[in-house]
Amino acid sequence: MRNQPKYHFIKNTIYALKGLKDIVRTENSFKIELALFFISIPILFLLDASLTNKILLFATLGLVLLTEAMNSAIERAVDLVTLEHQRMAGMAKDAGSAAVFISIIIALTTWILIVLDSLNII
């Protein structure tokens, strides 16, 4: 049987905000990515791009934050199981880091192509 309480919107929102607060407080990578997210938002409004492209730009920034949060969850779960150096634990953490890296590549590629397109360079 799973150790999961009955779904309650308010309680689940509180849990989510608690997790977000903890990640912001403890994860430097997340802080940097969150700062870049908020710096990039005004650029969305200034950019001469279609609404669809602006949504894509926003979504790719959110994707980076999402994967960083998931990576933090993976790292914490692995650390809960063992603090000793274990090959499989390292592989799990590396896979989480790879997901973050891939999301950053997706975001950068999307931003570069859409910005260049909006400036009529490509």
Rank of each mutant, 00 (worst) to 15 (best):
M1I: 15
R2G: 09
N3H: 13
Q4S: 11
Q4E: 13
Y7L: 12
H8A: 11
F9K: 12
F9C: 08
I10G: 01
K11Y: 07
K11T: 06
N12Q: 14
I14P: 05
A16W: 12
G19C: 06
E27G: 10
N28H: 02
F30W: 01
F30N: 01
K31Q: 15
E33L: 03
L36T: 01
S40R: 02
L44P: 02
L46E: 11
L47C: 09
A49K: 01
T52P: 00
N53L: 09
N53T: 11
I55Q: 06
I55H: 04
L56T: 10
L56F: 09
F58V: 13
A59N: 12
A59Q: 10
L61D: 02
L61C: 11
V64I: 15
L65K: 04
N71A: 13
S72Y: 14
S72T: 15
S72D: 15
V78M: 07
V78Q: 08
L83H: 08
H85Y: 10
R87G: 00
M88P: 01
G90S: 07
K93R: 11
K93Y: 06
K93G: 10
A95N: 04
S97K: 06
S97C: 07
A99W: 00
A99M: 03
V100C: 05
S103A: 14
I104G: 03
I104L: 15
I104D: 05
A107T: 04
L108I: 11
L108G: 13
T110P: 00
T110G: 04
W111G: 02
I112H: 05
L113A: 06
L116S: 04
D117Q: 09
L119K: 12
N120D: 06
I121H: 03
I121C: 05
I121N: 04
